[in-house]
C-alpha cells in the first residue's frame, strides 16, 4: 500500500511538472521546443513564448498551487469538506476592492502593479482582518467561530459588490462581472513577481506545519493532547493561507473550483497524510490550472478567451465525479 502510494505521488508530481514545462509551447501558434533550446525562435515567437506564455504559465502554476494548497489547509483546519480558499471572505473582500476601483473610476498603478490588483488586495486584507477581529471576540480562536465569521463577512461583502454593480453603468458592470470570472488575460512578468512572495511564504509556513495539520484533521482535543498549540497553529495557518489567497485573487481574480476540488481529488488518489498530500496538491493544482488555461487558449484561438474559471469547473467537475464513483483512486473523502 505504502509503495503504491509512493508511486502515485511520484507519478502525479512528475506528470504535473511535464505539463507545466510543455504548456508554454502550446497555443494558437505552436512552438517547437528545439527552437527554444537552440535559439531558433523568430522575433514574434520569442515575444509570444518569453513575454506572454511563460509569465502566464508561471502565474497559472503559482495560482493553481496556492489555491489548491489553501483549500487543503482550510478543509483540514476546519474539518469541513466544503471549505474553500474563499470560505473566509478573502475572495469577496478582493472582489469588493476591485468593484470599488471600477465604480469610483480610479486609474493608477504602483511600481507596475495595476491599481485594480492593489485595491483587490486591500479588500482581501480588510476581509482577513475583519474575520480575525470577529473571531477574537469569542474565546479560543475556534474553528467554528472563524468559519462562521468568514461566511458572514463573505455574504456581507457579496451584498456590497451587488450594490456596487447596481451603482455602475453598463461598462462598469461588465468590467466587474468579467473580473469576478477570474483569468490570466493581461499577464506579464510583473504579475508573476507580485504573486510570488505570497505563494512562496504561504507554502513555506504550511510546509512547516504538516504534522500539525494531520492532527487538526483529527480534532482539537486530540491535537492538543498530542502537543499541538491549536490556537497558535490555526492563527498562523489562517494568516499565511489567507494572505496567499489574497495575493493570488488580487492579480488573477477569484478562480473557482480548484481550491475546493483539487485537494479532494488528491486525497482520493494518495490518502490523507499531509506530508504526502502537500506536494501532490501543489503539483496537481499548478498543472491543472495551467492545463485549463492552455485549453482555454487552444480552443478559442486568438480572437477571444473563455475565462479560465469556467474551464476549471467544466473539466474538473466530471473528473472529480468519475474518481468519486469509480473507486479508481481507492481513497476516501474526509468524512466518508
Amino acid at each position: 500500500m505504502k509503495r503504491r502510494r509512493t508511486i502515485r505521488v511520484l507519478l502525479i508530481v512528475g506528470l504535473s511538472v511535464v505539463a507545466i514545462v510543455v504548456a508554454p509551447l502550446i497555443g494558437y501558434r505552436m512552438i517547437n521546443p528545439l527552437d527554444v533550446l537552440g535559439g531558433g525562435l523568430t522575433e514574434l515567437e520569442t515575444q509570444i513564448f518569453w513575454d506572454i506564455r511563460v509569465p502566464r504559465v508561471c502565474l497559472g502554476a503559482l495560482a493553481g498551487a496556492g489555491l489548491a494548497l489553501s483549500g487543503m489547509v482550510f478543509q483540514a483546519m476546519f474539518r469541513n469538506v466544503l471549505a474553500t480558499p474563499y470560505t473566509l471572505g478573502v475572495s469577496s473582500g478582493a472582489s469588493l476592492g476591485a468593484a470599488l476601483y471600477v465604480v469610483v473610476g480610479l486609474q493608477f498603478s504602483v511600481a507596475g502593479i495595476a491599481g485594480v490588483s492593489l485595491c483587490a488586495f486591500g479588500g482581501a486584507a480588510l476581509a482577513v482582518l475583519l474575520v480575525y477581529g470577529i473571531t477574537l471576540m469569542r474565546p479560543g480562536f475556534s474553528a467554528a467561530s472563524t468559519l462562521l465569521a468568514g461566511v458572514a463577512v463573505s455574504f456581507f461583502f457579496s451584498s456590497l459588490i451587488l450594490f456596487a454593480q447596481y451603482l455602475s453603468d453598463f461598462a462598469g458592470t461588465y468590467r466587474i462581472v468579467r473580473w469576478l470570472m477570474g483569468g490570466f488575460d493581461l499577464v506579464g512578468h510583473q504579475s508573476v513577481l507580485s504573486v510570488l512572495p505570497f505563494v512562496v511564504s504561504g507554502i513555506a509556513i504550511v510546509a512547516f506545519l504538516l504534522h500539525e495539520l494531520n492532527l487538526l484533521t483529527v480534532g482539537d482535543d486530540i491535537a492538543a493532547s498530542r502537543g499541538v498549540d491549536c490556537v497558535k497553529t490555526r492563527r498562523l495557518l489562517f494568516f499565511a493561507t489567507s494572505l496567499m489567497v489574497g495575493g493570488i485573487v488580487a492579480v488573477c481574480g477569484p478562480i473557482g473550483f480548484i481550491g475546493m476540488m483539487a485537494p479532494h481529488i488528491c486525497r482520493l488518489l494518495i490518502g490523507h497524510d499531509h506530508l504526502r498530500l502537500m506536494p501532490v496538491t501543489l503539483a496537481f493544482g499548478a498543472a491543472f490550472l495551467v492545463l485549463c488555461d492552455g485549453f482555454a487558449r487552444a480552443v478559442t484561438g486568438s480572437y477571444a478567451e473563455i475565462p479560465v474559471g469556467v474551464i476549471t469547473a467544466l473539466l474538473g467537475g466530471p473528473f472529480f465525479l468519475w474518481l468519486l464513483v469509480s473507486d479508481t483512486g481507492g481513497g476516501r473523502l474526509m468524512e466518508d
Binding site: 502537543g227 490523507h272 473523502l333
Partner: peptide, 20 residues
Amino acid sequence: PPFTVYEYVMLGRYPHLSPF
C-alpha cells in the same frame, strides 16, 4: 479520522517529532 491504523497510531509520536 481519515487515516489508516498505522498512520493514526504514528500521530501519537508528534511530541517527539520536529517539523520536517
